[in-house]
Amino acid sequence: MFQENNVTHVDGPASKMYGRWSLFLGGAGLILVLILMLDSAPYKNEDLDFNVNNTVRSGSLILPTNTQSPRALMIFVHGDGAMGRSAFGYYYPLWQRLAKQGIASYSWDKAGVGGSGGNWLEQNMQNRADEIHQAVAKLRKVPHLAGVPIGLIGFSQAGWVMPKALKNSSQLSFAVFVSTPINWLKQSAFLTQTRLQKEGVTTREKNQQLAQARQVSQLISQGDDHNAYIEFLSTAHPDGIESAMSPERYGFVQKNIGADALEDLQSVKQPLFVAFGNHDSNVNVADNVTQYQQIFASNETQLKLKVYKNANHTLLKNSEFGHLSPSLWWLIKLSLWEEDGFSEQFVDDVMLWLNSQIQQLALKKPESIGAHE
């Protein structure tokens, strides 16, 4: 990732001590940046937990300091992986901008992460949608949130979670979908193709690996256990054993490999903002854009969809963040750039759209906003 050119390296105690001090200063610098950023943030962070099947979900309620009564509340819905409530700091700039607009945010540690009990690898998409409903029930008990509009903002894998939570719900008023695929198997095939293309494999090898990937998907879909999966890899692709899925990950994929948001999206009545980046190497943007447009063709005003330039899967600027993965330096850079790290206009567009939705709801009868199911 990083290259060192024209650098003279000197071995010995002095250089080792210098290295330790550099690491210490780098860490101290990060802590200082985060403290300054949080001190200047236009919000206060309150712990707010809720329960799901007798296990706790530990979360943070982000309240704007410029108002006693937030205009709305956005629930953050994680993508794949062991995500804590801030998604490695990725949410901080969004929380900050929402707070400036008088909008509260809420996010929690995934099951088994941070302060939350359970295990996210044991969940399916419906389980995660049920979590959202439990969170809403808890939030409605907070006095100054009882009647505010509640929306969702979700990323990547959340595209299979949010439609399940939105459909048939009068508690949720709108949603922002960021880099969200519709079909799991299509998404998986695209990821495999992208990886092979980056690796520069020959056409013959590419075709072989794609065929093997399809066979693995078939094994998983038909319910074969992890041992059968490992046995297949040891015969068809021995080199792939080292990178094979763990039994826990295999079980998670098996629970969710049939995920397809099509039918759920067709039942969604709330307005949606859908955003993609033109440098997304995780999602087939063109294919998913077409699918969203087809789903909402009969009610085009319900959907606002935009593909952003110079944007990767996270909607961060590809030119600045495309070569980085979440790490110490990624967090330092994002902390310094704040919302300017996102693709041009993305954050502004989301805020403009949210303000429009909130204003439209305000014109309706007050009792219709946040009415209980």
Score class of each variant (00 low, 15 high):
196 L>S: 14
43 Y>K: 05
124 N>K: 05
327 S>T: 03
194 T>G: 00
306 K>Q: 13
352 L>N: 15
189 A>H: 07
162 M>D: 05
108 W>Q: 10
17 M>K: 12
33 V>I: 13
256 N>P: 06
116 S>L: 01
308 Y>K: 15
164 K>A: 12
83 M>N: 15
18 Y>R: 09
218 Q>S: 15
31 I>H: 04
321 F>Y: 09
354 L>C: 06
172 L>K: 07
236 A>C: 05
236 A>H: 11
328 L>Y: 08
59 G>W: 01
11 D>K: 13
46 E>D: 14
314 T>L: 12
175 A>S: 12
359 Q>G: 07
203 T>K: 13
360 Q>W: 00
102 G>T: 08
63 L>I: 13
97 R>Q: 14
207 N>R: 10
41 A>S: 15
298 S>V: 08
75 I>H: 05
350 V>Q: 03
65 T>G: 11
179 S>W: 01
367 E>Q: 10
21 W>G: 04
85 R>E: 04
140 R>T: 15
22 S>F: 07
343 S>G: 11
50 F>W: 10
10 V>L: 12
307 V>Q: 09
81 G>E: 08
336 L>G: 13
13 P>A: 00
114 G>W: 03
363 L>T: 12
284 N>M: 02
15 S>C: 06
12 G>S: 05
332 I>W: 09
367 E>H: 00
137 A>Q: 15
154 G>L: 02
26 G>K: 13
162 M>S: 07
18 Y>L: 12
338 E>H: 13
308 Y>L: 10
251 G>P: 07
246 S>G: 09
318 N>M: 04
281 S>A: 00
373 E>Y: 03
319 S>L: 13
122 E>P: 08
227 N>K: 10
338 E>C: 00
8 T>P: 00
28 A>Y: 09
101 Q>V: 01
111 A>T: 04
349 D>F: 00
161 V>Y: 04
269 K>H: 12
310 N>M: 08
181 P>M: 01
